[in-house]
Design a protein around this nucleic acid. Structure first.
Lengths: 210, 210
DNA sequence: TGGTGTGAACAACTTCACAGCG
DNA sequence: CGCTGTGAAGTTGTTCACACCA
C-alpha cells in the first residue's frame, strides 16, 4: 500500500526477476501484461506477484493488468535509482575472469565493472574483456578515485576476510561473495553469498531425497 | 525424530553447509562440536541447527554436543549416499571453463566431472583441466556410456530449453541451471537455478533499500 | 468481462525457553 | 553443570477467494 512500509525479504529477492521480465517485455514491444502471464513465465503464483507489487502501491489497473512502460519507470525511479554502480572484481582467476566476460548488462545498464584486482604478477597490467587488472596495493586508491561501491569476491577463502575488511575501510557498500567464508563486516554493509559448492551439493542431496 | 518424515526445504538447503563444516572439523582433528560453535561459524541460530538435526533423529548427546566422526558417518550414509555422481558441463565458454577448474572436490569426493560439451568446433577435442570437450552430437551416447546423472548448464539462454529436453531424454536426473530461463522438465527431474544477474541485481536493490 | 488488490486462512520457518539427561 | 531436543509461541511467506472497478 505504501512505499515506505518494509518490503518483505522474499519479495525483495523476486524483484530482479520482475524487473528483467518487464525489460524483456518492452524489448518485445509488449505493452501490457497480467499477473497470470508473469506467473507462467517466472513460475511464481500469480497471487504472490500481485501481493509483491502491492507493497509498492497500486501499480496495476483492474481488468487491464500492468502497463509495461509505467512499471519499468517505477522500477527505475523507486528501486533501481539513478546511481550508476561501479563494481570491482577481486580475484581474476577462472571465476573472476568468467564474470569479467559475463553479460550482466543484459539486465542492468547502470553498472560498470571498472577494475579487477589480482596478486598474480603475471596478469597484473593485462586486461580482460577491456577491464584492467591491478595489483591489490592499488585497491584503496582505485576505490576512492573511481567511486567503487560494490566488490565481487572471487579469491581464495584464506584471504577473503582480510580483503573484505580492506574493502569496507576503503568505502565499499556491498559485497557479492563467492567465497565459502561467512564474512564478518560492519552493519550497513550488505553481503550477498553465492556458494557454488553448496549449491551443487544441495542438488545432490535433493536428488537423493526425492 | 524419524528419518522418513519429510525434511523441510529450508533445512535441506542448509545441509551442505553443515556437511562442509563437519568435514573441515574432521580435517582439523576436532572431535566434538556444540550447536553454539556451529552457529558462530555459519551464522545460523543454534536452535535452528538443533531443530535441523532433530529431523534426522537424536544425533547429539546432552551436555556434550555432536561427535564429528559420527555425524560425518551419518551424512555419508543417509544423505550423500554411496553413489558417485557423474557430472557433465554443457557449454564450455567462460563460465563453463571456470567451473571445470573449480575445486568442487573440496566438499565432495564422490563426484566426477566426466565431460564437457560445446558446439564451437575450435574447442571440441581440446581438454580443460583434464576434461575433454565433446561435440553436442555425442551427448546422448556419452550420457549413457558414462552414467552421467547431473548436467550443469552454462550455455546461451536460447538453446537451454532444447538442451534440457535432450538431457532429460538421455537419462539425466538433475540440472544445475545457470541460464536465466525457467526450464520446463518432467516431474522427478530436479532443477536448481543459479541466476547470476539476478543475484547481482538483488544486491543493488538491497543496497538501495536498506 | 477480465483483471487487480487484499482480508483472512493457511503453511512454513524461526526462535524462545526449558525439561531432562549424561 | 552444559548441552540437546522439542513443545509452544512468534514471525514470515503463500494462497484462496472475492469485492470491486475500468
Amino acid at each position: 500500500m505504501n512505499s515506505k512500509k518494509k518490503i518483505p525479504n522474499a519479495t525483495m529477492k523476486r524483484l530482479p526477476l520482475y524487473y528483467r521480465f518487464f525489460k524483456n517485455a518492452e524489448k518485445s514491444s509488449v505493452d501490457r501484461v497480467s499477473s497470470r502471464e508473469i506467473s507462467e513465465a517466472l513460475d511464481i503464483d500469480s497471487a504472490t506477484i500481485r501481493r509483491d507489487f502491492s507493497y509498492f502501491g497500486e501499480l496495476g489497473r483492474k481488468g487491464y493488468g500492468y502497463n509495461v512502460k509505467s512499471l519499468l519507470n517505477f522500477f527505475m525511479e523507486h528501486i533501481q535509482g539513478n546511481e550508476v554502480r561501479n563494481v570491482a572484481i577481486i580475484g581474476a582467476g577462472n571465476l573472476g575472469s568468467a564474470l569479467l566476460n559475463y553479460k550482466f548488462s543484459n539486465i542492468n545498464d547502470r553498472m560498470n565493472i571498472v577494475a579487477a584486482f589480482d596478486s598474480n604478477d603475471e596478469i597484473v597490467g593485462t586486461s580482460i574483456n577491456n577491464t584492467l587488472v591491478y595489483h591489490p596495493d592499488e585497491l584503496e586508491d582505485m576505490v576512492s578515485r573511481h567511486n567503487i561501491d560494490v566488490a565481487i569476491l572471487t579469491l581464495p577463502a584464506e584471504v577473503s576476510q582480510d580483503m573484505a575488511e580492506r574493502l569496507v575501510d576503503a568505502g565499499i557498500k556491498g559485497i557479492l561473495n563467492f567465497t565459502p567464508i561467512r564474512l564478518d563486516v560492519a552493519d550497513g554493509i550488505y553481503v550477498h553469498n553465492i556458494d557454488l559448492s553448496v549449491e551443487l551439493q544441495a542438488l545432490f542431496f535433493y536428488m537423493k531425497h526425492i
